[in-house]
């Protein structure tokens, strides 16, 4: 889907934030990017989106070299959802907000509205279409930001810390939405420092370490190695810790723990 080859980027000459990084986002997967603060997680997604120009390296989309195309152009195929939805909400109504992107991509008003309504239905905000977006809760605003990206009908979605600022209920809803979109075929690039989300939802993960890729593979591979996880500056997911404490084989999700517990005790909860 998206391939990054030999990417290098630095804010100044001495210190490179990203150095010779190569990876690819495969069709239909959720690829998570993790790492300590300041290791360049969002720099990578910005490079993928075209918000930053790499010093070196190439970005391929479906085999096409898109390194030179600006973010506004790439947004037709890649949707980028920022951490704070307040930095993009400008319209008077929820519908108008979601219509912006398709309008920018040359669709007529009618087509744009159709696409916007479809996207709003997808994120369960259609009933609020005529409301002011400012009156939505933080979780709803985040879903609106996702809908405005979806309205352009992209093939890839980049989510930057999508659950920040939301309470546990809203978080569950948002993750469920992410999973649903993924099951419908959307490839997702997820930046997060929440290892619980990562363990439960990521197909694969990348861990950045001083501008390089310190680990690439399945979450289970990394989290079964406690020392390596900690050396990369990450914490073990809660499920992994709890399952170890209970003397169970390593589990990545609460559901797995429950399943194994039930098997062990032989009862049904």
């Amino acid at each position: 889907m998206i391939e990054i080859r030999d990417m290098t980027y630095g804010y100044n000459e001495e210190k490179k934030v990203i150095q010779n990084v190569s990876f690819s986002l495969r069709n239909g997967e959720i690829l998570a990017i993790a790492g300590r603060n300041g290791t360049g997680k969002t720099t990578i997604t910005r490079l993928v989106m075209g918000l930053l120009k790499p010093e070196q390296g190439t970005v391929f989309f479906d085999g096409r070299d898109v390194t030179q195309s600006p973010a506004a152009e790439r947004s037709a195929v890649i949707g980028y959802v920022f951490q704070n939805p307040d930095s993009q909400i400008f319209a008077n109504t929820v519908l108008e907000e979601a219509m912006y992107s398709p309008l920018q991509h040359g669709y007529s008003g009618k087509q744009a509205e159709e696409k916007a309504r479809k996207a709003l239905r997808e994120v369960a905000l259609l009933e609020f279409a005529e409301r002011s977006p400012q009156l939505l809760s933080r979780g709803q605003k985040q879903r609106l930001a996702i809908a405005s990206a979806l309205a352009a009908e992209p093939e890839v979605l980049i989510l930057d810390e999508p659950t920040s600022g939301q309470d546990c209920r809203e978080r569950v809803q948002l993750l469920r939405l992410m999973r649903k979109l993924n099951e419908e075929g959307m490839s997702i690039l997820l930046v997060t420092h929440d290892m619980d989300i990562l363990a439960e939802h990521a197909t694969r993960m990348l861990v950045l370490e001083q501008g390089h890729i310190g680990f690439e593979g399945k979450p289970a591979e990394l989290f079964s190695d406690k020392e390596k996880t900690e050396a990369l500056g990450l914490e073990l997911p809660e499920a992994v810790r709890v399952s170890a404490e209970l003397g169970l084989p390593i589990c990545l999700t609460p559901a797995e723990i429950y399943a194994k517990l039930v098997r062990r005790t032989g009862t049904h909860a």
Partner: peptide, 15 residues
């Protein structure tokens, strides 16, 4: 608001 109970506690409660 049971979503907020940390996993470990929740499992012990469940156990």
């Amino acid at each position: 608001y049971a979503e907020a109970i940390p996993l470990q506690t929740k499992i012990y409660l469940e156990l």
